[in-house]
Amino acid sequence: MNGLAGARSFVARWARGDTWTVGLIVIFVLLFIFTKALRSTYGLDALAIASLPVAFAAAGQAIVVISGGIDLSIGSVMALTNVIAASLLATYPELSVPVVILVMLIGALVGTVNGVLVVISRVPDIVVTLAMLFVWAGAALLVLGTPGGSSTPWLREITTGTLGIELVPRALVVLLVVVGLVWIPLRRSRLGLSIYAIGSNRLGAFRSGVHVEGTKIAAYALTGFFASLGGLALTASTGIGTPIPGPYLLLSVAAIVLGGVSLAGGRGGLLGPIVGIYILGIIRADLTFMGMEPAFSTVIQGVIMVIVVMVGAYLTLRRREA
């Protein structure tokens, strides 16, 4: 079989199956062209690095939402891993690689704790992770009472600037490589199918032989892992650790909605939410260029989200009726 034709048919199949993400990419490209026209010096690298933490958060939130849950504690977990990384890197600057790996493991562990609590308490996900939001935020304060600590140079270097041409910012490459390395093999694996399965229909998944509880815990662990990447990205971009959770919960939920992930579970992917984050980011940049106050651009962003979710919901409604 002709390889090119094979690839083309794969893309065609994907585009048919995921028109929402394709539409988002088109919107992003149009917005980018518009931004360039507005200000020709604008590069993707600033957007990519500013969006990196929240893009990881969106990817993590997407996984747990696909599995039928939701993680309200994601911002706190990011803050926790952010301060752990910053304080460890300040103490052991020479051990930066082990520290980064350790932080990722802590993220996965924290996620596992969330998942185990959801499973054994039998309390709805939203309530458990609401409670854990406080717990992990408190833990972050225990690690660092006030903003402090430091980063390590290579973390900043791999996420700043561009690779050769201007359209390929390093932060974007890091994001796509990391998410791709984890998600693409996972998506095809039994665990990946199980994550979609329990989100799609719990009972059906159980009857199909899926270990529902184990899969749920694994999904939370993955979310925690991605949250820790978000925390590391925060360490890289700010150079310090901040124990107060940022607005990443809101943004991650906004991104998965924009990205076509069904809050009911079972549907969607990671690419859509990531593109969603970039779209929100570029809109904010545009508003700033146009001289809008930050407060006012928050209003505009919120209004855009309200309109998007209303139109999206309306289209779903129409499709169901047709």
């Binding site: 939701i70 906004a254 909605v257 928050t298 209003v299 209303m310 919901a313 309306y314």
Partner: peptide
Amino acid sequence: FRVHPLIMTISMSLV
């Protein structure tokens, strides 16, 4: 419009 309440009210809090 049948927007999920979590999403709708989070978006409105941004506004």
